[in-house]
Write a protein that binds this DNA or RNA. Structure first.
Length: 489
RNA sequence: GCCGCCGUAGCUCAGUCCGGUAGAGCAGCGGGCUUUUAACCCGAAGCGCGCAGGUUCGAAUCCUGCCGGCGGCACCA
């Protein structure tokens, strides 16, 4: 896999370079500065859907895009032009353009960016077509495009050279347009409900807000290491302490973990925090938000997003799936015994603490079986250092995760706002770190002091945008929904 | 990190099991064609098979290692 210019077959490149020189010799600028007055193809086509085969009109349009196909016919040719909105056939005729201009147009290569002026008509076979009255080379393409019919299939090239994927595969273009719509709708919905979008540091002196290993970088002038954020949680809660009441941040988090179909080392997350609300309110909002997004993109897939989504306590979900009752097996030895006694569950229990085993049960036996959206609620305290204790269930916190299609896509809690309790949770995390857990939380005294200032009762949610896009577009790999996924060099 | 599968012209693929010296379509090149739409027809050309070794008279085909990709596990939300 290499993409040095010299790796291209010299004849293919040379032919395009030769055309470039010929074009220049004719006094034509192959890379002009602008092309004003372009109508998107879909817009040019929209009024003429009823045009009868063979009908012609005087209405003129200017379109621009990439030359995607050519069906030559000597004195007449059909060309396909593709832009972001669609594809349109244009017809070039020697008797309209003159021999010389016809020859110039015919010499354009597949992949060239061209501007076309023409009048609308419907071909004999009924295809809406633009009869070319004028054309402009907008940028010469010096490399061959992917196959015009099969598109670009090679997965590796599709990820490494996403521009080729976008050129060749309409589904790829559509997917990233859909992704943008999802993000817009998310922002619109939160904005309309009085949330304000904020920006907090990506480079952090101390990382926190999630259980993950960070990337470390270095600031030269300060001569100190900084972490790329693994979450925005702690800063956003400081905004709540400050009285901003409803805030959200949508941006990249970075986690130094393995890659998989569900994990990219940098990924997009939205977190929002709402004062005076609890995790039940947060569930309502997640539900409403996702349903709204599905509607906006005209979701048409196997998932039934309609409300209400089941809200199942974690212990119940695990009991239903495995028969093991973690509310009975509340210490490691009892739980290990229950796992050993179970014929449904096969788990490696060695070196694994009680909370980890519970998490394993959830992720191996509950999560994969979920298809339609479900909230799993009320997690053990040990797994959730920033969540508030459950109002009626000792040992648990008011936390939920939203699952769909076998995948977690949101995580939320009634936020812990008791500073002394938070301090104790940090101390627990420090003890975990000392016993070798690389994903524990570092102690963040500044954050605890912020809580001491007084934080209102607050609900906080983190929702993975990439995963949400996967759900909405039916993709099973995060690389399909990230424009430029992480790849080895 | 481990296991499995994969890597052949610019692109999409066949050929690998059962070694015999690489092929098709598209694109490109030359020519023909005023309603095609995977346009079509004729002609000439293009890859030595991810990389490096090995076995063999002979390797794209078998073996080893490495690189890259995909999937799974581990790890992890």
């Amino acid at each position: 896999m290499s993409d040095q210019p010299t790796d291209q077959p010299s004849e293919l490149l040379a032919a395009r370079r030769a055309k470039l020189e010929r074009i220049r010799a004719q006094g034509v600028e192959p890379f002009p500065h602008a092309f004003p007055g372009v109508t998107p193809i879909a817009e040019a086509q929209a009024p003429w859907q009823e045009l009868e085969a063979g009908e012609e009109r005087d209405d003129a349009y200017r379109i621009a895009g990439r030359l995607a196909a050519r069906r030559g016919q000597g004195k007449m040719a059909f060309l396909d032009i593709v832009d972001r909105s669609g594809r349109m056939q244009v017809q070039a005729r020697a008797d309209v353009l003159g021999e010389e201009a016809m020859a110039q147009l015919i010499e354009f290569d597949l992949g060239d960016l061209v501007g076309i002026d023409g009048t609308i008509f419907s071909s004999r076979s009924g295809e809406l077509t633009l009869r070319v009255t004028g054309f402009t080379l907008l940028a010469k393409s010096l490399r061959p495009p992917p196959d015009k019919h099969h598109g670009l299939q090679d997965v590796e090239t599709r990820y490494r050279r996403r521009e080729l994927d976008l050129i060749a595969n309409e589904e790829a273009r559509e997917l990233f347009v859909t992704r943008a719509k999802i993000v817009s709708e998310l922002r619109r919905s939160l904005d309309d409900d009085g949330f304000i979008e904020v920006e907090t540091p990506v480079l952090q002196p101390l990382y926190g807000g999630a259980l993950a290993r960070p990337f470390i970088t270095h600031h030269n002038t300060l001569d100190r290491d900084l972490y790329l954020r693994i979450a925005t949680e702690l800063y956003l809660k400081r905004c709540i302490v400050g009285g901003l009441e409803r805030v959200y941040e949508l941006g990249k988090d970075f986690r130094n973990e393995g890659l998989s179909t569900k994990h990219n080392p940098e990924f997009t997350m939205v977190e929002w925090y709402e004062a005076y609300a609890d995790y039940g309110d947060a569930m309502d909002r997640v539900e409403q938000l996702v349903i709204g997004i599905a509607a906006v993109i005209n979701y048409d897939g196997p998932v039934d997003f309609s409300a209400p989504w089941p809200r199942i306590p974690m212990a119940q979900a695990i009991k239903d799936a495995t028969g093991i009752d973690i509310s009975e097996a509340t210490d490691r030895d009892t739980l290990v015994a229950a796992i050993a006694a179970s014929d449904k569950v096969k788990l490696d229990v060695e070196d694994r603490a009680w909370p980890t085993l519970v998490d394993d049960l959830l992720s191996k036996y509950v999560e994969p079986a979920i298809t339609n959206p479900v909230f799993i609620t009320d997690y053990p305290t040990a797994l959730s250092p920033f969540a508030k204790g459950h109002r009626s269930q000792p040992g648990l916190v008011e936390r939920f995760e939203a699952f769909c299609s076998g995948m977690e896509f949101a995580n939320a809690f009634s936020e812990l706002n008791d500073p002394d309790e938070q301090r104790r949770r940090f101390e627990d995390q420090v003890r975990l770190a000392e016993s070798g857990d690389e994903e524990s939380q570092p102690y963040d005294e500044v954050f605890v002091q912020a809580l001491e200032q007084g934080m209102p009762p607050t609900a906080g949610v983190g929702l993975g945008i990439d995963r949400l896009v996967m759900l909405m577009t039916g993709r099973d790999s995060i690389r399909e929904v990230v424009l430029f996924p992480a790849m080895r060099d």
